[in-house]
Design a protein around this nucleic acid. Sequence first.
DNA 1: TGTCAATTTGGCAAAATTGCCAATTATAGT
DNA 2: ACTATAATTGGCAATTTTGCCAAATTGACA
Lengths: 114, 114
Amino acid sequence: MDYAKEKDLAASRAKVMKALGHPTRIFMVQLLSNEDSSVSDLTKAVGADVSTVSKHLSLLKQAGLLIDRKVGNKVLYSLICPCIMEFIHCIDDVIYQDAEKGLSCINVNRKKLL
Amino acid sequence: MDYAKEKDLAASRAKVMKALGHPTRIFMVQLLSNEDSSVSDLTKAVGADVSTVSKHLSLLKQAGLLIDRKVGNKVLYSLICPCIMEFIHCIDDVIYQDAEKGLSCINVNRKKLL
DNA sequence: TGTCAATTTGGCAAAATTGCCAATTATAGT
DNA sequence: ACTATAATTGGCAATTTTGCCAAATTGACA
């Protein structure tokens, strides 16, 4: 077997995952799921150098997760897919399951449905 | 504002995302969503050194995504949350939306619902 | 017990990521 | 045009990740 297609798909998916695989970046995505924010707002919230924040944002944009627009003096970033948060909540199952051992992910899901 | 809790959550989430943020690792997760596999099987599919594959697997295990069990001569790995694949499909929306510009993620989702 | 196949671990060099500072660009408001 | 604020970019050192080889470990089975 060659798996060429599956590997291509994996590479595309990995790129997006990787973008989300940094504490500061996923934190900013969380903030942006509440409201569009400027670089300076995010910089305050994150507590790092502006240049660092700016680079993280452009990486997220590059991954297809954010868009930006100029408003007055500032650049506002927004989530392209607000649905990305549902997706992130899905990851939380893995974290819970890790926290309370023995409780399978499926049970966690069932719990939430009840 | 302090955001201490949100930042903690972000860090936990980032850890899992990061584990999935590598082409080889997410490819193996894809394979494991079909059937449990041994290190040697995965090694063939991936086409890297066994030691490399073994290390990737232990990283995924460490992230809470896989478990392993010994069966005869081999170590079989399996997905703890098969639901992780739904979550991965969610990412595909971002990829599609990137491919066909102008089609928002929400529309892609609507399409799938129809 | 000895051997062999399967897997993990140690070690290391190459590559990639991260985050800060300094310098640059852009633009709103005076 | 000038100034001040906002953001991006270039550059670089420090850290982390990656992937291979070689060596050690594990367990099945003769």
